[in-house]
Design a protein around this nucleic acid. Sequence first.
DNA 1: TTAATTTTGTAACATTTGTTACATGGAGTG
DNA 2: CACTCCATGTAACAAATGTTACAAAATTAA
Lengths: 220, 220
Amino acid sequence: MENLDLLFFCATCRDKSPEEVVKIKCTIPHSIKNYKKGEYIVYQGDKVEYLYMLVKGKVKTEIVSDPGLTLHIEEIQAPYPLAAAFLFADNNRFPVDVIALEDSEIILVRKDSIEKQMAECPHFLRGFMAFTANRMQFLSERLKIFSLKGIKAKIAFYLLQRAKNNEFELGRSIASLAEYFGVERPSLSRAISEMVRDGIIEFKAGKGKIINRNAMKEML
Amino acid sequence: MENLDLLFFCATCRDKSPEEVVKIKCTIPHSIKNYKKGEYIVYQGDKVEYLYMLVKGKVKTEIVSDPGLTLHIEEIQAPYPLAAAFLFADNNRFPVDVIALEDSEIILVRKDSIEKQMAECPHFLRGFMAFTANRMQFLSERLKIFSLKGIKAKIAFYLLQRAKNNEFELGRSIASLAEYFGVERPSLSRAISEMVRDGIIEFKAGKGKIINRNAMKEML
DNA sequence: TTAATTTTGTAACATTTGTTACATGGAGTG
DNA sequence: CACTCCATGTAACAAATGTTACAAAATTAA
């Protein structure tokens, strides 16, 4: 149970001390379910009436089309909430099956329990909102990056966002940045090389400088 | 002021009658600001302490890099909330300038007023959560589409999601679907033609049938 | 109905990106 | 120091997508 504060309640009541969190924990009705490897946790089309907090294990999501034909969507590692975006949505049904890849443990909190707790505990409210807001921010930025056409546009946007006085640090490896952009590593590497060759940026060992800001702007 | 219920409060207290909404409206402290065309509404880096509800007019967002050098990001038409994702986020600062493109009107509601109202009015809470959840769902689906590599993968995912008994309707024009996918219209048109040619789908006048589901799956 | 307008299909070619394979160079280890 | 292990750069070629232009089809207006 030591996961509770670490994950869910810590994510939501972050400005409380661990001792306080323990008390709050008890006031939120919840149940815990365990699933064996391979077991179905939810079925596509099920109504989302609980917050599903995966606290242990690993699951996968699938879209089932025909018997025997499934489309694998993604894997989710604990700790992570499984249906945060669906609990309050108008279309509050799971778009996928969720299946345990390992023995997994899930904390279930009814939607009305969440609402009640939010009404009673401002910290919880803020925490919950912060969680969804942070996630939304993350999704927005990723979507922005993806919607830019061409690798150089993505690079330009990414660098302009974090440059101070025209100097920047990547903050991550080329390989992971390529994954973040949704392009292949050699393609990103080549694009950077070309921008250096064309005198638009300087770049060496994770750090660099913007030389021609106009050209960067043109790329968006 | 007739916009209020239509937009913000209607989006949040959707299960109340208009008469009830009028009452609620008065209980939420808010202020209204008007901006002339060209005026700055917020500056990049400003703390988000209010919910900014654009109720009239049109604005644009920009990233300012150097004096005289701006990157245009997007235009937003009323009605729309300007900072919903940022109000509760840990990084609660505007990432962009917001500038009025037309004479615009904005309703400001302090963050704590929002919190207070959420605690007091379950309908408001549900409505607010539904709004953000719906938006998150929307972002998730778009991101999913964008993250798929190759036009045919996007088509396959899109069609498998809405096919019933292997029959589907696009539900929109090819042109708008291309825009949704973030690809060019002729490219999408070509991809569909090829899938028809290869006997994977049938398609005519916005409707079609999935012939080879295995092949569709392979494309993801 | 015809005419006008919009949407869609198609083709030829340019450009970008992916793929694969290998070279280089640094960080850490023995 | 030599050696290994990664991260990165690079090159040649393949594949996918963009671009442009135009024709055909569908839709709408007159």
